[in-house]
Design a protein around this nucleic acid. Structure first.
Lengths: 237, 237, 237, 237
DNA sequence: CATGAATGAGGTTTCATTCAT
DNA sequence: AATGAATGAAACCTCATTCAT
């Protein structure tokens, strides 16, 4: 039985496509889009230069494929990370951990994506937007379910919290890349989660006010305690 | 006396250099670095192509100049915005407003900067880092003075708050660019300021809303409880 | 009995070869030699690309086959047209009609032939010459038989009349292609036939004008001769 | 005085353009359009490859320039040839001599022109048509003036005579190229002129009538001679 | 006989940079 | 200091041809 290579047709083509994409990713990451020559990609993928053009129309198309592939992996990874948890903020923490590490690992790929729409091609700009929207849907879902469960304030603003979450995380990732001495992943995670939590618990526009309202509660409690103590005091006499 | 043009030598050269830089900025913004030809820059700056090379060694050097110029303007603008205020959080708000608008106006320029170190040139990476550090110093200063004045918790982490601040702001700027229907600049500012405030009021590692919001209140409440208990204790005598 | 497909081997191969040739003809006509990709020919002929090379050594060989095929058809068609007539000039008219239409229908094919020897390949140049010679033999035959029958002057120059015939006809065809409003096929035929006839009736080197322009001279000479003869006559008496 | 090179700017550019065109012409003639590499043209014109593209947008544009240049030279040459003569048919003869030699000398250039519209580019097809129309205008002028002077029958068809003229001449040129042993330029010229004359003297549709009139004359003349001789003979008795 | 994926040489074109004027 | 024509390296891509299946 020659069951060793069951997939003789379709599979081999896919393998070659994958090889090209990962070769291209490596080179794009290392030398940027403009700095990478198609010939190099071909050589690294162990294909002839012309063969590339059987799989991709363009150098640009290769870049698109790399980016698409990256987003797909990101999305799958994030989904898996989140699915491992049941509680809203456990999910958030898992997503935070995943995203931070993923962004640090492939920062340049996010930049490649950015490059796609930096050239003014309308269609590609739309694609990039869609990829990100699709990825971000995981957070959005988490957020909305949190609202349903009562973990997240009903009037919290998804837009703002989302920007807070991804913005802080990605900026931190960049900072950590530039300063390799910063390695406190857990601290960062804790901080971000706490910050997001804080934003989730209050209405989007005035996050502080809730706590202050809480402080009012505290004050009334204190008043009641004082009253109770005063009461206690008068009884003792 | 030929006082009509007092600065006939040095000044005219500077004017030409400036013309080149702003022509280059406009084109880089519009069509990206790779999409902009040196010839175009020259034409737009009303200089001959060869003349460019009397002022700049390279196309790359032009890009560097554009980026440097941009950071300088940013820094000056931010400093002015902050200097108009005296209170820590008023300064913060002013800086927020300024940065958000500046980033939206020239998003691509930030990307150009990113591009400088995306190609793996060590020296340029360092430059970009220095520019940003210099710009960010304004925030750092604000933060540290806030700590001195007691507006910011002594144990708040500058790194984390800074990442929170710039990260959220820049991500929001990007989001707003992609979704022109979002125009609530004030809401965003308010949200970011509140969020930063919240992070400033607590130690970096324990940003949780609960501790924080209450911290001052709690202290006073604690004081009252202590007083009440002391009172109670005195009764025991 | 498997008499359903009597020609199962040889015939099927020929069919495929024919399919390739006619696919190639169509494409060459439409887009020129350089503009036609081998892959297109294959697809149009419903054969795999590699299969082409079982039948033809080259793209160039395909072109040769197309041209050869075209000349063959032309020759057969012309022969049939001529055979339908018995008189010399009826044959000529039939040939004229046929050639004019054939050339208009497949003008580009003649050009393809030209292209074969425009590239400086000696062998192909010779082929093209032979094809044409073979085709033109029909005219030559008509001409020579006309001489035998006395329809054509014995001293008429075959070369010149042949050039006159095909040259005028083909140039007219081109003109008619460029000016679709010219549709007077019959007029053209009549003109060409008349012109050829005129050239046939006189010696090649001394075409009609001499006799013709001379007709006046001849008349005066005749007059003088008559006068002389009359003179002679009167003297003799 | 450095009057040695009075034209330092414009002229030198024109010289370079001319150099490119003639280099291109030589190569196109020798190896065809597809067979000629742009690099070769550049080398032969003693320019850098990139320089070509300062003068011509395309390889195709070079071809167009070559063809345009050729038609221009042809037209100028033909005009000069014709202007040397005053009589209609002397002009015709001069034009015949010129065209025959010009076509033989640069046959392939005519074919290049053909190639321009063989690819289906509408605009180029139009250009080629215009060039030829402009060139042919010389013949048309000659023809029409001949009609005015009474040298050419008023009802002669310009279209047909023109096709006869150029068609026969160009076909003959081709034949002569393929058969170098044919060198009887004068005979060809004589024949073509005579043929055109014959077509000019009669209405387009019935070119034979003149000769027939001639042949009638001849016949009647012969009759008179025969009668006179018979007369003479009878005297001998 | 048939296939069609793979090849890779070679073509055209661009554009940052130089240098004679 | 200023010019802009000239350069030429190198990039992307095409497509006729081959060959393992």
């Amino acid at each position: 039985m020659n069951a060793t290579r069951p997939q003789t047709r379709r599979e081999r083509l896919d393998a070659k496509e994958t090889a090209v994409i990962s070769a291209a990713r490596a080179l794009f990451l290392e030398k940027g889009e403009a700095g990478t020559r198609v010939a190099e990609i071909a050589k690294r993928a162990c294909v002839a230069e012309g063969t590339l053009y059987l799989y991709f129309k363009n150098k640009r198309a290769i870049l698109q494929a790399v980016v698409a592939d990256h987003w797909e992996q990101l999305t799958v990874g994030a989904r898996e990370a989140v699915e491992g948890q049941t509680e809203t903020f456990d999910k958030l923490e898992a997503l935070t951990t995943f995203h931070l590490r993923a962004v640090i690992a492939d920062w340049s790929l996010l930049m490649l994506g950015t490059r796609l729409w930096a050239t003014g091609a309308e269609a590609e700009e739309q694609m990039e937007r869609d990829y990100r929207r699709n990825y971000v849907a995981i957070f959005d879902d988490l957020f909305r379910r949190g609202q349903d469960r009562g973990d997240v304030a009903a009037d919290a603003s998804l837009w703002q919290v989302r920007d807070l979450f991804y913005g802080t995380l990605e900026y931190t990732a960049r900072t950590m890349m530039l300063h390799p001495e910063r390695t406190d992943y857990d601290g960062v995670t804790e901080f971000v989660v706490a910050q997001v939590k804080s934003a989730c618990l209050s209405g989007g526009q005035m996050p502080l006010y809730k706590e202050e309202s809480g402080s009012r509660d505290l004050r009334s409690i204190t008043g009641r305690l004082e009253a109770a103590l005063k009461d206690l005091k008068s009884l003792d006499v």
